[in-house]
Design a protein around this nucleic acid. Structure first.
Lengths: 215, 215
DNA sequence: TTAAATAGTTAGAATAGACTAACAAATTTA
DNA sequence: TAAATTTGTTAGTCTATTCTAACTATTTAA
């Protein structure tokens, strides 16, 4: 069975591969807060397991096998987050750390049961897609609120960032998935947006708007 | 933070200490399926942490600190088992392996929430007591069915053994906690018992009767 | 009460996963 | 394009946990 360490590396590599397809060692080291040599030796191990393609000094490429395995771990993570929110009453800002541990549990029936009790959800509480059992992931075609024009009316569907602080910020602004947002104005200088939703107005920074995914 | 390995040793030692109070190395090695030297070195480590009293060639004694820590792990295990049965629809014979993994999760809120959702249960699905948050455990004063006399009517309260095979056997006999059992006859030769419950009669072996705890 | 059997210990080695120090390749910048 | 910076690699070490082989203490039984 794969160690938790292997699973954590694989997940980070998978996540970094989503944006760039090619992954570099330093990025992994930063994400996992380990040293470069630690990454280097683990990368060789993962390559030996057929999960990565590795050539000295070249960017890493995740293989289909690696992608599939990573997606199955992410499936467990996201199902867990959904379960914690829907069935156990946790807030979306509380579930990450718990899911981070539960994703390593080896018990297909446990996660199948969660899935069933949740009614086979397609998205986790932050709007990210839940991979299926075969490790396939639906592609989302949402765009950032930052790309919207004044006058547009859109619905908040997912988040491009899910740190505790960001989620707490969204809570404080009463921004949740499903909220209908209208863009009132965009400040040309700094791209701040004045928006209206749930009957009140707010000004959101460009950074925040880039992390709010809408359709 | 304590490793899973440390937690597993501690749990085994705690469980063995319940019966005899003094624990021997060989018993631990068998329970964990590791070698004697492995146990020996871990035992020294646990002693160094103040969880055990260790003297060369002497039986081990668990300290109050060790007992408390072990009970907190067992609390997580048993709460989990209860949650899996009550909230997720698993059978009592399915939950041990999952709980064995979940007991290592570090998240007080997670287990507190389980506890709350379950209504602060005192027993796990096999009738074993759930230690409280301070690591205190209620003492059960149940006796084995084997000690009962013909004519007695008792209720099945807990199990003295919880292997999969035993639980499946009990399922096949429709024996569950709460069932009212009347002792009809005891065979003098082999201590087999003829009993009646739920409107039918069964003959139970002495071994089975010694593992059925009643009051 | 001594010999045999059992239980416990020590020494030394293996593996996984992390680290630092030193170095080499690749990339950026002047 | 040469120098400086960044990125990646190697070598060697450390800790945790396991193991086998060899040995010692304790207990059991003849």
């Amino acid at each position: 069975m794969n160690s938790q360490s292997i699973e954590n590396y694989l997940k980070v590599i998978f996540n970094q591969a989503i944006s760039t397809d090619e992954v570099n060692t330093t990025g992994i080291a930063q994400a996992l807060e380990v040293s470069l040599p630690s990454v280097n030796s683990m990368v060789k191990k993962l390559a030996g397991m057929g999960l990565l393609e590795y050539q000295k000094y070249k960017p890493l490429k995740i293989t289909d096998k690696g992608r599939k395995m990573a997606a199955r771990i992410i499936r467990k993570h996201r199902l867990t987050e959904m379960y914690l929110v829907e069935k156990m009453g946790f807030g979306w800002e509380e579930v990450h750390d718990i899911a981070e541990q539960l994703e390593h549990i080896q018990s297909p029936v446990f996660f199948d049961r969660m899935d069933e009790l949740l009614g086979y959800p397609q998205r986790d509480p932050h709007g990210s897609p839940i991979p299926n059992k075969n490790g396939q992931i639906a592609v989302l075609e949402y765009r950032p609120l930052a790309d919207c024009q004044p006058g547009e009316q859109v619905e908040l569907k997912a988040l491009g960032h899910t740190s505790d602080e960001f989620l707490k910020y969204l809570n404080s602004k009463e921004l949740a998935l499903g909220v209908k947002v209208e863009v009132l104005e965009v400040e040309a200088f700094d791209r701040n947006m004045k928006v209206e939703y749930s009957g009140h107005q707010e000004v959101l920074s460009a950074l925040v708007c880039s992390k709010l995914l809408v359709s």
